[in-house]
Design a protein around this nucleic acid. Structure first.
Length: 305
DNA sequence: TCCCAGGGACCGT
DNA sequence: ACGGTCCATGGG
């Protein structure tokens, strides 16, 4: 028996059947590969059979794409309506991407090409603490190694979720679980190098309640929000941008890293500008859609290099 | 061996 | 507000 989670005028629908969450639509604009590969998340991977496996909010998920949509199942449990509603939010299924895409494409020819190349990317609405720690680890690091560091951190102090085919699965650690280890232990066992003290100090600020999702949501303006996130140890301009964007606190954020810098130089001819100047310039082009535009442009410049 | 990776803290000026 | 330097780690 099917349980409908939502339906839309355009025919898109999401429903729950036999514990499996399914989304169908003629023009869904969802590509699992691009969404998981565009650098916003680090705990999804493609399996040899073409499906995807990821750990989200303490659940091991399996995602498979089909002709006109995709299905998600919980590897160790049955998916209930409550979690299905969480997934609708996580995959940003309420947002009209065809509308966002046309707005971004209209900005300029480069953006139009980037949208074309990255079609199917969705901005995931990820958990705050995981996003903060993940992007502290991302500083001066590369994506394959960021994934390894996070996987080791989860295996070190994340809750064990189960074992399948000889593989163990772990949740992303709670702040308190990270605090059980010293900076030296985190550095040596998770291989995060000099970022270990930052990870631990930030975990402490979340554990004691100085930082929480609620407090950041209460900031009011994107400016005060960014200022608050910037005050976390190991968090600078770029990481703060990623946190506010990927934890869905400010979709207008435009984080500038080496790739975006390169993109601005090679595609827009913006040479010799500082990162804040590039951020300001690009935000003026894309406005409230800056975050999504940034993802398309990030994906595009990496694809053509 | 050097350079780079979704940079940031800390120090000078 | 700036510019330089150092910071672990691993892959090319």
């Amino acid at each position: 028996m099917e349980q409908t989670v939502f339906t839309r005028k355009d025919g898109t629908k999401a429903y729950l059947k036999d514990g499996v969450f399914t989304v169908e639509g003629d023009d869904l604009l969802f590509s699992a590969y691009k969404t998981f590969d565009c650098g916003q998340c680090f705990r999804w991977e493609r399996l040899p059979d073409g499906s995807f496996e990821g750990v989200v909010r303490g659940r091991v998920l399996s995602l498979r794409e089909n002709e006109n949509g995709f299905s998600v199942s919980d590897v160790f449990a049955s998916c209930d309506v409550h979690f299905a509603e969480f997934l609708v939010n996580y995959f940003d299924l309420q947002t009209d991407y065809s509308r966002c895409n046309s707005i971004i494409s209209r900005a300029d020819a480069v953006a139009a090409k980037a949208v074309d190349t990255g079609l199917g990317i969705r901005l995931l609405r990820q958990e705050l603490f995981e996003t903060v720690i993940s992007f502290i680890i991302s500083a001066n690091n590369n994506i394959p190694r960021i994934k390894k560091c996070i996987a080791r951190l989860c295996a070190l102090c994340g809750e064990k979720l189960g074992t399948r085919y000889g593989k163990d699965y772990y949740a992303f650690p709670e702040p308190e679980s990270i605090l059980a280890f010293s900076p030296d232990e985190i550095q040596e066992l998770a291989g995060v190098g000099y970022r270990a003290p930052f990870i631990r100090q930030t975990a402490s600020l979340f554990a004691e309640g100085t930082y929480s999702l609620k407090k950041l949501l209460d900031c009011g303006s994107p400016e005060s929000l960014k200022k608050a996130v910037l005050a976390l140890p190991g968090v600078g301009e770029k990481v703060a941008g990623c946190v506010t964007l990927f934890a869905c606190l400010d979709r207008g954020a435009f984080p500038v890293d080496v790739w975006v810098e390169r993109m601005c130089r090679e595609l827009y001819g913006l040479d010799g500008l500082t990162r804040p100047a590039l951020e300001k310039e690009m935000k003026s082009r894309f406005g409230e859609n800056s975050g999504l535009a940034q993802q398309y442009l990030f994906y595009y410049i990496r694809a053509i290099h």
